[in-house]
């Protein structure tokens, strides 16, 4: 993902104090470069310079595969008195770091701030990342609107634009949206009918296995009571088996509902990431 949105052409004019840190970054000495950018923050009263330094430090942290630290670093930016371009760069980078750190709500929030406070050009530049973040928060309708607006605005060739718009329409067909499984519902179903929660999550064999175990417990009790006439033994053994697997089945149905939801989300979103990455390069 780091290679997908490399922020080309964002950085503005820099003051001379960036020479050392920039050269260290270019030389791949990321830890030292990160320290030097922090030194710039320490030594300046100018919020513009400080914000630039924080942006550069975030780059170093991202290159060191520290997305969480990069996000935390970008959240230190104070947006008071900055130019639109630097606000955009900072918000966009924060959203990007948050996306990589899997903090999708934060990514959506940063893109929303761009939409609210910056001109349309900037809004469109962040549209693809915004759509990606919205996909992860399961707001596909909003993502579709965002991408359609972006295509209308950014793609000037009519043929290409129409093709992209139809591709977006095809991708975001509401009939194809994944249907999520509610773990609470799975829990309730398994409570009343053992195995039904697993069946609801789409795991047929799991459901069958649970049902067999439950039936075994009941069977042991029935054999004990009606066949061999060992009433207490039958009840204790039968109930022991039934109760153990009954509770385990409820827990497992919750787990399977969550697992199914995750798999459905990835199945739908992963191809979207690839397609959006390809579309973002079209002009």
């Amino acid at each position: 993902m780091i290679c997908i949105f490399p922020f080309a052409g964002f950085s503005g004019n820099k003051s001379p104090e960036f020479f050392k840190a920039d050269s260290l970054q270019s030389a791949g000495q990321l830890e030292l470069a990160s320290l030097e950018y922090e030194r710039i923050c320490y030594g300046t009263f100018d919020n513009y310079v400080r914000t630039q330094a924080l942006n550069e430090k975030a780059k170093c942290l991202l290159l060191s595969n520290k997305a969480d630290a990069a996000e935390a670093n970008m959240l230190r930016v104070n947006y008071f008195g900055l130019s639109d371009s630097l606000v955009f760069e900072s918000r966009y980078r924060t959203a990007y770091c948050s996306y990589l750190a899997k903090d999708f709500e934060q990514a959506v929030s940063q893109c929303f701030m761009i939409d609210q406070f910056l001109p349309i050009d900037y809004q469109m530049q962040s549209a693809v990342l915004h759509a990606l973040a919205l996909n992860e928060t399961r707001e596909w309708d909003k993502a579709k609107l965002k991408l359609s607006a972006w295509a209308e605005y950014s793609i000037h060739n009519e043929l290409k634009r129409d093709s992209v718009l139809s591709e977006i329409d095809a991708m975001y067909d509401p009939k194809q949206y994944p249907k999520f499984k509610d773990p609470n519902r799975a829990n309730s179903l398994s409570t009343f009918v053992p195995g039904l929660g697993q069946l609801y999550s789409g795991y047929i064999f799991d459901a069958a296995f649970t049902t067999i175990l439950m039936a075994t417990g009941l069977g042991v009790a029935a054999v004990g009571i009606f066949v061999v006439k060992y009433y207490v033994t039958g009840i204790v053994l039968g109930y022991g088996i039934y109760q153990r697997f009954y509770m385990a089945g409820i827990k497992r149905s919750e787990y399977l509902a969550n697992k199914r939801t995750y798999l459905s989300l990835r199945k739908f979103n992963d191809p979207l990431i690839e397609t959006l990455t390809r579309l973002s390069s079209i002009e």
Partner: peptide, 24 residues
Amino acid sequence: LPLAAVAIEVALIAGILSPPFLVF
């Protein structure tokens, strides 16, 4: 307690020296 109940029942029905009682 359920294990105790099972052991008592098996002892009463099958006897103290029976294999089921030895197990339970």
